[in-house]
Design a binder for these strands. Structure first.
Lengths: 344, 344
DNA sequence: CGTCTTTACTTAATCGTTTAAGCGAAAACA
DNA sequence: TGTTTTCGCTTAAACGATTAAGTAAAGACG
């Protein structure tokens, strides 16, 4: 297919030396290779003239390193993950690494297959936003000793590297914020999932209410399945605003829940914050543009991503052996959607 | 780093045959290799037992094919591109290809560097959402005969494969739609760019107005630079709604312009569609969630992406030599933001 | 029974690098 | 002058697959 691919041996032939010498010069190992000044210059000149581009496949095969990392996320078309992907990509490039991204759709089997595809491609390591039931994936990576960092979500039962948000604390602050602004009946919308970060978010919310002497009603907590979100979130909201136990505020625990929930809010003509005040997790332009800008717990995606890459890089250098675990605080961005409650 | 990597020769040693035989069996070439039944079974058994995963680097190096394609887009954190990326990823995987995504930030130099990184990684081909001044990139790929497909944007002066939206037509329809709903003074917001798709979108808009006997005023067309979008779009909108030549409707020619523009609309408390009706390009959840759902020209991202991958695949098989060029129609999704004008 | 074909394998080159080891020749040292 | 060191380069193995070509043994054929 390609015609003018130029290899080390092409240069070697033109200069009249061995490929070894060319390799030494072009990879900056002149010292070790003890190459003559003139011949080095000549090699460099010819390489430049032919626009020599080393074949990274060959290099990787030989060195046992590809300078590639695999990034497994739920869905690149979700802006939260897209932003993560962007930061990971930029940070990795700074270290000379290329990222291969795969979307798992929160499906452990897909994630497993993805992992295998990437392993076959000999990635040097992984950054993973894990999905439910991905314990097997984590165990497998540990067993084969492939470095990886869990991002945004982790498994407390495994001793792994990870970088996550302080989810309990974030929920707690979201709750306190709403309470301090006069809301008393606060709902919480979460995915139906046994993942740690989900239960942490729920825990923080409940603690906030309890700390402020509010009796948490069980049916304020709504859990919807990821796959049937569009229908289930409608039922959940219907129940939350029904006469029986109407809430005056609602915390969405992810971006996807917020988007789907707010769509239904519009449909039902529920007013924010008059009917229901809102604080959400995740972040996206949607929150700015909503008629009533949405308050949210800002997760410092750039910091999370950068830290994850840094940890992975240190692993790839084989530096430490202790697990590196970072929990980063989210920050409340208070907007109109949770403004002080008017007395009705 | 990795301990238990198992290679062809490991299997060969255990079974007591040569690596060649193992290769034949495991790559389903038993016929050509004329391998015995029993030994084939044994090889397969051991391979399974050891969980053998072929080293794609070695395979690629030998075969001169990596089954990898490079996708260059402006920015993965922009939902329009994120959706493209997702579709390209899925469709490619169906063909057994892995995608490496890179963000160019609409910067030709970054795109060039990205291209080189990916070439070094021996991608088999490219799908490119090109940026301004990327003619050099296109010429280079043609010269080295690396297959590529331009997506969403193309250069009319080059004879390349491409898949694009019918931009002139889409703008035209957006314009007609607004006119038919009673708007007469229609503005158009575009990036300051000489790229073909931009001028096509402008052309369609102007034609629509002319066809309906509306005298197009020059200062209805606003062009803002990609880099200084936040400030320039404010000035542009200020001018558009100013007393001198206030518009009653506005077409945003990209997602990014719409988001930034609408933010400023909120700030200035401009009402949609009472003050200004809106039709936008691009698509995202934002448009659904805005207090007044935004009408937009729906570009069939899934079709665009799938077609681009299909074309690239046919190139990789070396099928046709004629350039394959597809122009796909966008579809108006009419919502509240451009509803029939009330007489004031 | 000798020759030809088929079967079931092996050998070895190859892809494009890296890099340890080797090897003359010149320079330094004793 | 003889020995060691340094210099400047080459040789060749290795990474892990693929695959054309070779080969030995068994079976088919006349």
């Amino acid at each position: 297919m390609r015609s003018d691919k130029v290899s080390l041996s092409d240069i070697a032939r033109m200069v009249g030396v061995s490929t070894a010498l060319v390799s030494y010069v072009l990879s900056g190992k002149e010292k070790e290779g003890r190459v003559g000044q003139e011949i080095a210059a000549k090699i460099r000149a010819i390489a430049k003239e032919l626009n020599y581009q080393p074949n990274l496949l060959a290099k990787s095969l030989r060195k046992g390193q590809t300078f590639t990392i695999g990034l497994i996320i739920a869905d690149i078309s979700n802006p939260f993950f897209a932003n993560i992907a962007r930061e990971v990509e930029d940070e990795s490039r700074r270290h000379g690494y290329t990222v291969i991204i795969g979307s798992s759709d929160e499906d452990a089997d897909k994630a497993w297959d993805l992992m295998n595809v990437l392993i076959n491609r000999q990635v040097d390591g992984f950054i993973i936003v894990s999905s439910e039931h991905s314990e097997r994936l984590v165990e497998h990576l540990q067993r084969i000793r492939l470095p990886f960092v869990l991002l945004d979500r982790h498994f407390p039962q495994f001793d792994t590297d990870f970088v996550v948000t302080n989810n309990a604390r974030a929920s707690y602050e979201a709750g306190i914020h709403l309470i301090e602004n006069g809301y008393r009946r606060i709902g919480f919308m979460a995915y139906q999932s046994a993942m740690f970060h989900v239960s942490e978010r729920i825990r923080g919310y409940q603690e906030a209410l309890r700390d402020r002497g509010i009796q948490v009603e069980a049916n304020w907590l709504k859990r919807v399945s990821f796959l049937a979100i569009e229908t289930e979130i409608r039922t959940a909201i219907d129940e939350l605003v029904s006469a029986e136990s109407p809430v005056d505020a609602l915390i969405f625990s992810t971006y996807g829940l917020a988007v789907n929930g707010l769509k239904y809010f519009n449909e039902r003509h529920l007013r924010v914050p008059e009917d229901v005040a809102i604080v959400s997790f995740g972040q996206a332009e949607v929150f700015d543009l909503y008629y009533c800008p949405i308050s949210y717990m800002r997760q410092p995606i750039d910091v999370l991503a950068k830290k994850a890459v840094d940890i992975l890089m240190s692993r790839l250098k084989g530096e430490s052996s202790e697990s590196q675990q970072y929990t980063i605080e989210a920050q409340l961005v208070a907007r109109e959607s949770s403004r002080k409650r008017m007395i009705r």
